[in-house]
């Protein structure tokens, strides 16, 4: 079955390792991909789409070599195919203006300040992915155990009564 991808964009390997480890609970249900800069993130998105998968959530650092995180999120948001992707900025360095730009122009859904706690990170990811699958996925059952089960069950019963 094709999977929803969680993409983490972070240039420092130590931080990347830590995020990846914190995302471990989602690893079975979702595909977790990492990239170290924006170009690399583009290849991941391309490869995932070629394989029939789709990116559902991006956790993006702001200070990246080359194009910065906010610019990347703004670009993605302008591409209709990537508009549904949930976007979370995870950074210690974005200034006020950059953050405002991300919220206004990339429809940024959440901002996580470094250092983060794993519980917070997981809660944010759970909420965002729930939003994503509710909006984009037909079959919600595989996600009930790992995401927000209540909301998903409610939606499932709703959809059944609709049909």
């Amino acid at each position: 079955m094709n999977k929803v991808v969680i993409l983490c964009v972070e240039d420092e390997s130590e931080v990347r390792d830590a995020i990846q480890r914190d995302l471990a609970p989602f690893a079975g249900t979702f595909r977790i991909e990492c990239s170290e800069d924006v170009d690399d993130a583009r290849s991941v998105i391309g490869e995932a789409e070629d394989a029939g998968d789709r990116v559902g959530l991006i956790l993006c650092d702001h200070m990246l070599p080359g194009k910065n995180g906010v610019e990347f999120l703004v670009d993605l948001h302008r591409e209709p195919a990537h508009r549904p992707i949930r976007k979370v900025l995870i950074t210690g360095q974005a200034g006020h203006e950059d953050t405002i730009k991300a919220i206004n122009e990339a429809d940024l859904q959440h901002y996580i300040a470094k250092p983060w706690s794993p519980e917070d990170l997981q809660a944010v990811v759970r909420k965002q992915l729930t939003d994503y699958v509710l909006a984009e996925e037909e079959n919600l059952l595989p996600y009930v155990s790992i995401l927000d089960g209540n909301r998903l069950m409610e939606a499932i019963s709703h959809r059944r009564s609709d049909t």
């Binding site: 390997s13 990347r16 991909e33 990492c34 990239s35 170290e36 690399d40 290849s43 490869e47």
Partner: peptide, 9 residues
């Protein structure tokens, strides 16, 4: 040594 994400993939 850490490998790059590209290499890993």
């Amino acid at each position: 040594k850490p490998v790059s994400t590209r290499e890993q993939r």
